[in-house]
């Protein structure tokens, strides 16, 4: 980090925050603050939806995922366009007709108050935790590679987001997201072209793809029905539709983005925009990771990209073994480099199979390094992350990009963290104000009272997110824990919404009782480890719908006999 990097980084972040705060000062009422005065055009909604979903981890972790496992992760997004169409056709017209502020408000109209309150509370629990992790995840990585103070970084990110989100509400969130997306794409495009330009002179872009293909990184599609492969065409189409439907259709941090639209048409076009661009965007981010992989076929790389992990093992009794592994890795690298150059010119099968052999050695070495890190963790009673995919891209950035561009790429990562956190705080506040505070606790006050309450709730959730991020290092693998908590609640909530939209036969009492029973069973299913946690989503959704039907049938029969 040089002076120029600091100027670019601080200049970018502060000017976005200042512009967003100044431009959206003076919300007149709650509708202005929560729905942005219903003025948003389709492209604002589209960018806002994409900026909310793309967090810092998208840009840190996805290239690392491609570096290690290739392009297959793009399949995870194949269901998203299908979900967009379902939401456009079914969810948006109903949300719009009822003029709701939150998705859960719709459930009171369709079922009853207790179902609305239950889903709102489930949302607040999981999204409140997730907002803390949205800040924590990039902060822990950046503090490890740059030596910054972790808690100070968390507090700075949190305060920057709080400033404009509290003052301007939804409008401030969407205005800043447009600029953040501009920074993100500028930075990523520059990084991509620089990586390609850093390759040896005789390695063109297509030759780089040949080299990536020889190492199996270009296996984009997997049509097998293998449950053990997390990312296949089928899991993307089925599981991806399901997850996107619950995220974009029932999670207030996304629903609030399109509810700010001027009309049904603008809202629908915003989601269509997302459905058109999401897959190419993820493909591009993964391609950046593949190019980083090719770069490291011609430039030496550490055996594990996480500097904290390397430090841990070098300060343990396994240091010598680890150094031997790194030396072996350097030998493999030199041999592979020759082979890669030869393969780029000839593309012969014989060389490809030699490359595959060396890749196996490379993988075995990296896994052996991970084992040593785990052993060093045990010896020193630490819990350092052994999986280094979050560190690959940032390692490349810090060690290879020129002055000024390091600052720009750090601004990309922090902008992505801020754009997601802002949407989350904004939605947490709206749900607290409209679904709980105004609905059940303090009714019949004037507009100004609820506007102030919304601002205070935004501030409170922001402070809570900072606190969660600051204590997050205490939990082992907290990011996975948040995903598990999401899986425990998400399926149930989606099931409730599907019953609301598609099954008029089911009434409020049946849904509420079914939701409580389902939640208890899903938590038991997680506790006793009945299935991989991602499947709890599907299980919870199917269960709540099945139980609600049974209860409704029993209720109907009792009514007939009465």
């Amino acid at each position: 980090m040089q002076t120029l990097d600091w100027v670019v980084l601080i200049g970018t972040l502060v000017s976005i925050v200042a512009y967003g705060t100044w431009k959206t000062r003076g919300s007149k009422n709650v509708e202005d603050y929560i729905k942005g005065g219903n003025e948003a055009k389709w492209w604002t909604i589209g960018l806002s939806v994409m900026a909310t979903q793309a967090s810092a981890i998208t840009f840190l972790s996805t290239p690392g995922q491609a570096f290690h496992d290739g392009m297959g992760f793009v399949q995870f997004y194949f269901g998203l366009p299908i979900a967009m169409i379902i939401i456009c056709l079914v969810f948006i017209p109903l949300y719009y007709r009822l003029k709701v502020y939150t998705a859960y408000e719709f459930l009171e109209n369709r079922f009853d108050l207790k179902t609305r309150s239950l889903t709102a509370i489930l949302f607040l629990i999981q999204r409140g935790l997730a907002a803390g992790i949205t800040i924590y995840a990039p902060a822990i990585i950046l503090s490890a590679v740059l030596g910054w103070n972790l808690n100070l970084l968390i507090i700075i990110i949190g305060i920057l987001v709080i400033i404009y989100t509290v003052s301007g509400g939804t409008k401030a969130v969407s205005i800043t997201q447009k600029q953040q997306m501009a920074v993100i794409f500028t930075g990523m495009f520059i990084a991509f072209f620089l990586i390609v330009s850093y390759l040896p002179e005789n390695i063109t872009f297509t030759k780089a793809l040949d080299i990536a293909g020889a190492s199996g990184k270009m296996d984009i599609l997997d049509f097998s029905f293998d449950f053990n492969n997390r990312y296949t065409f089928w899991s993307g189409i089925i599981g991806g539709t399901f997850l996107a439907l619950s995220y974009f259709g029932t999670d207030q941090s996304q629903v609030q983005r399109y509810l700010s639209g001027k009309s049904v048409k603008e809202m629908q076009m915003g989601l269509i925009f997302n459905g058109l661009l999401k897959v190419p965007m993820q493909f591009f981010i993964l391609l950046v990771g593949v190019m980083v992989f090719v770069f490291y076929q011609f430039n030496s790389s550490p055996i594990n990209f996480n500097p904290t992990a390397t430090k841990t093992v070098m300060n343990s009794s396994y240091a010598e073994e680890y150094e031997q592994l790194q030396n072996q890795q350097d030998e493999i690298f030199l041999k592979k480099k020759e082979l890669m150059t030869a393969y780029a010119d000839t593309k012969t099968e014989a060389i490809a199979s030699q490359i595959a052999n060396y890749n196996d050695g490379d993988r075995a070495n990296r896994n052996a390094a991970k084992d040593l890190i785990s052993k060093a963790n045990k010896e020193r009673v630490l819990s350092v992350e052994t999986n280094d995919k979050d560190y690959v891209f940032i390692h490349f950035i810090l060690n290879n990009l020129p002055r000024g561009l390091i600052g720009l790429l750090l601004a990309v990562i922090l902008s992505a963290a801020m754009s997601s956190t802002a949407s989350e705080l904004n939605a947490l506040s709206s749900t607290t104000t409209m679904d709980l505070y105004k609905r059940s606790f303090v009714q019949n006050k004037n507009e100004n009272h609820y506007l102030k309450a919304s601002k205070w709730f935004t501030l409170a959730w922001g402070i809570l997110a900072i606190l969660i991020a600051c204590v997050a290092y205490l939990a082992d693998n907290l990011i996975q824990l948040v995903n598990i908590i999401g899986s425990i609640f998400y399926g149930n909530v989606l099931g409730i919404f599907l019953l609301a939209f598609f099954f008029k036969y089911i009434k409020g009492n049946a849904v509420f009782v079914a939701a409580l029973i389902t939640q208890a069973i899903v938590i038991a299913g997680w506790w006793y480890d009945w299935m991989p946690y991602l499947w709890l989503n599907v299980f919870g959704c199917a269960l709540v719908m099945g139980i609600a039907f049974i209860i409704q049938i029993i209720n109907s029969l009792q009514d007939e006999h009465a």
Partner: peptide, 30 residues
């Protein structure tokens, strides 16, 4: 009119189908 909406939903599905076909050819080429 409804017709225009059908067009934009068809556009999303067709565009994504084209992406997948492109991915298939990229995968086969490299």
């Amino acid at each position: 009119p409804k017709e225009r909406w059908k067009k934009s939903y068809t556009l999303v599905l067709v565009a994504n189908a084209i992406y997948i076909v492109l991915f298939y050819f990229i995968m086969k080429s490299f």
